[in-house]
Computed example of a mutant assay.
Amino acid sequence: MRAALAHEWIKFRSVRSTVWTAVVMAVLPVPGAVFVAATESLQPDDTVLGGALTLSVPAMMLAAVVGALVMSGEYSSGTIRTTFAATPRRRTVLGAKAVLVAGGLYLLALPSVSCAYLVGGALLGDGYAHGDPMPALLGVAGAFSVAGLLGLAVGTLVRHSAGAVTTVLGVLLLPSLFGPLFGDAQRWVAGISPTAALEKLTQTSDATAEAVGSLAAWPSLALVGGYTVLLLLAADTALGRRDA
């Protein structure tokens, strides 16, 4: 596993698409906090935490894209054959990628969202409720890691970069977009989305029970983590049965 992790780190930092996507993901939340403060667009019933992390949802989508590209990019370039030749145990390869994605995204996301909250608090002043940043910020960073693992699972199953990115973005966006079409079931449909868990963790006023379900923030994140683990298990099974 140690050698596999070293290989995956070299590949990750050698591919521009994953590096730049991760960089943009890490940078995005802070300008969002500045924009909300500059435009004075924070609603009176919202919190500084929710306003400062306005761009955390698109940032989390980029985290999912990073996870998808880590595996699907190797299939698209054909380097997956070399990877499996160097590490014949495919489960080890998937495990190393999962550790790299989850750990790397968490280490990038936690300082990013923390800085966004501090900047938002400094610029917005005392006219708004600040919310409870801890341990919520830890959960927000964890949501980025979960989204990355979800992308990794989808990338392993789809094995095509464009298809994997489209699929994982659909998983993140479609429940919220189509939830209102299901009437009273909206809270159940939209509530299963990773974006719903993120909105609850950021304590935004948009995260109402009618829109994103009545589950609390941490149980909602646990639900998303649960089906992400199941999807990773399905990806592991498919990886072992398919040819490279």
Rank of each mutant, 00 (worst) to 15 (best):
A22M: 08
S193V: 01
A207L: 04
A136S: 15
A185H: 14
A217D: 12
T92K: 01
G78N: 07
V146C: 08
A197I: 12
L108W: 02
A244H: 06
V27W: 02
L107Y: 00
L108N: 09
L118F: 14
G139K: 05
T228N: 08
G120V: 05
V57G: 12
A26W: 08
S17E: 12
T237Q: 11
L152C: 11
Y128L: 07
A3H: 13
V30K: 07
G95Y: 00
A59F: 13
H160R: 15
T156P: 01
L118A: 15
M60L: 14
A216M: 00
L49E: 07
G226A: 14
M71F: 03
S176Y: 01
R90Y: 10
S214W: 02
V19N: 03
G78T: 07
A63E: 01
L107R: 00
M61D: 10
G179S: 08
S72R: 01
G78R: 04
L42T: 11
A38Y: 11
W188V: 12
M71D: 12
R81P: 00
L174K: 04
L233H: 01
T82H: 04
S112R: 03
S14D: 09
F35V: 15
F178I: 15
A86V: 10
L198I: 01
V70L: 13
A209D: 15
A98R: 03
P58A: 10
R159F: 13
P29V: 06
L107F: 13
K97C: 04
G103Y: 05
A3Y: 13
D184F: 02
V93L: 09
A52T: 13
L124E: 12
V48L: 08
E199C: 00
Q43F: 11
A3P: 00
G191V: 08
A207I: 02
A185T: 01
S41Y: 01
P111K: 04
L62K: 01
L239M: 14
A222E: 05
K97V: 05
A162R: 13
G127C: 06
I10Q: 14
G67H: 05
L123T: 12
S161C: 08
F35N: 02
V99Q: 08
L181T: 11
L100I: 09
Y106R: 03
L49Q: 11
G183R: 05
P58I: 07
W20E: 07
P58W: 07
A153I: 08
L181H: 05
S220F: 04
A235C: 12
V189R: 07
V140N: 08
V65A: 13
A197C: 12
S193W: 04
L100K: 06
L124H: 03
S72Y: 03
L149Y: 09
T208Q: 09
R90P: 03
T237G: 00
Y117A: 13
A211C: 00
T54F: 14
M71L: 12
V30N: 04
M25F: 11
A122F: 08
P31T: 09
A64E: 06
V154G: 04
L42G: 08
S56H: 02
A136Y: 06
G155C: 06
V15P: 00
A147D: 03
S145G: 11
P31L: 11
P31Q: 10
